[in-house]
């Protein structure tokens, strides 16, 4: 057994898992507010990362200017998407709404490939020093930064839902739309804001992954990996999403370790979460923290 590799992979797992958690959170945000399963979540990462990359390379903007512009753009983009495409779909059957988001995802993915090409492009370096030493292990600075960013976002979400007026309005809407509306909450605004925030947060994750791995259409695979995480945690639980993300991240890297040490099957870490997904759906379909639907006639 190679303990150093195991340790390294576990750290990787926590870092990647935290990012999964962030994306899963923004996925759950949309689901909770508007009951829409967003298959285009991965494309939010992609669009955010490409926008930031474009600002930083073509316009030569420093990161601290380019990044906020990206966020502002993603916010506008999220609102626009909700108002133009998703709002007319309110009240349509669930299959139609799912299919619309799937359609959006292929449109955006092809659009990004068309504009920016299919090859991965590296981000301009953002940090002065490339690696830091923690407990005698060399860890890349971007990894540390990504972990910090993920934790900040999670804390931000916690604050937002507990204390801010908008967050409370969102929780009220998620609980009962009619009651929320009669209390004077603009449900339309809540829907639009949930998409805006979700797009922004996903874009942060996209930029972080882009800085680590370079930007390419492979980023949108995060949107698929989110499903095992949210199913594990429960579709409508923010805490569950974070935990699910962490577990999936760790699981991936653990599967990679087992694979590289004993099995040698190849891309085990990509596929392991999906096996787990099927098993969870069989034994505990509402996940660890999800609300169990009770149906009354």
């Amino acid at each position: 057994m190679n303990f150093e590799l195991l340790f390294q992979l576990l750290i990787n797992g926590v870092i990647v898992g935290a990012l999964y958690g962030v994306v899963a959170m923004s996925f759950v945000l949309i689901y909770k507010a508007s009951r829409i399963v967003n298959f285009a979540q991965g494309e939010f990462l992609l669009i955010g990362a490409w926008t930031c990359w474009w600002l930083l390379t073509s316009w030569q903007l420093p990161f601290w200017i380019g990044f906020p512009i990206t966020l502002a753009f993603m916010m506008a983009f999220g609102i626009l998407l909700q108002v133009v495409v998703l709002r007319p779909m309110i009240g349509e059957p669930i299959i139609s709404v799912i299919m619309v988001t799937i359609g959006l995802s292929i449109v955006f993915q092809a659009l990004m490939k068309w504009i920016f090409g299919v090859f991965a492009k590296p981000f301009p370096p953002i940090f002065a020093s490339q690696t830091m030493s923690i407990f005698g292990l060399d860890v890349q600075t971007v990894y540390i930064a990504s972990l910090v960013v993920s934790l900040l976002i999670m804390a931000g979400f916690g604050w937002f839902f507990k204390y801010s007026k908008m967050g409370l309005a969102m929780r009220a809407t998620a609980f009962d739309q009619q009651v929320a509306q009669s209390l004077g909450i603009s449900v339309r605004q809540v829907f639009a804001m949930s998409w805006a925030i979700s797009a922004m947060v996903s874009a942060v994750a996209g930029v972080v992954v882009g800085v680590v791995n370079g930007v390419s259409s492979a980023l949108s695979f995060f949107g698929i990996k989110v499903f095992p995480a949210v199913i594990l945690g429960g579709l409508d639980s923010v805490v569950g999403a974070v935990l699910g993300g962490l577990i999936v991240g760790l699981l991936e890297n653990f599967a990679h370790f087992i694979d590289s040490q004993w099995l040698n099957w190849g891309n085990m870490y990509e596929i392991a979460p999906f096996y787990v997904l099927i098993i969870i759906l069989m034994i505990k379909p509402y996940g660890l923290f999800g609300t169990k639907d009770i149906e009354r006639v």
Binding site: I102, G103, I106, Q109, A110, L111, W114
Partner: peptide, 8 residues
């Protein structure tokens, strides 16, 4: 890419 987009 245009084909993919057209499908969507």
């Amino acid at each position: 890419f245009l084909r993919e987009m057209a499908i969507g």
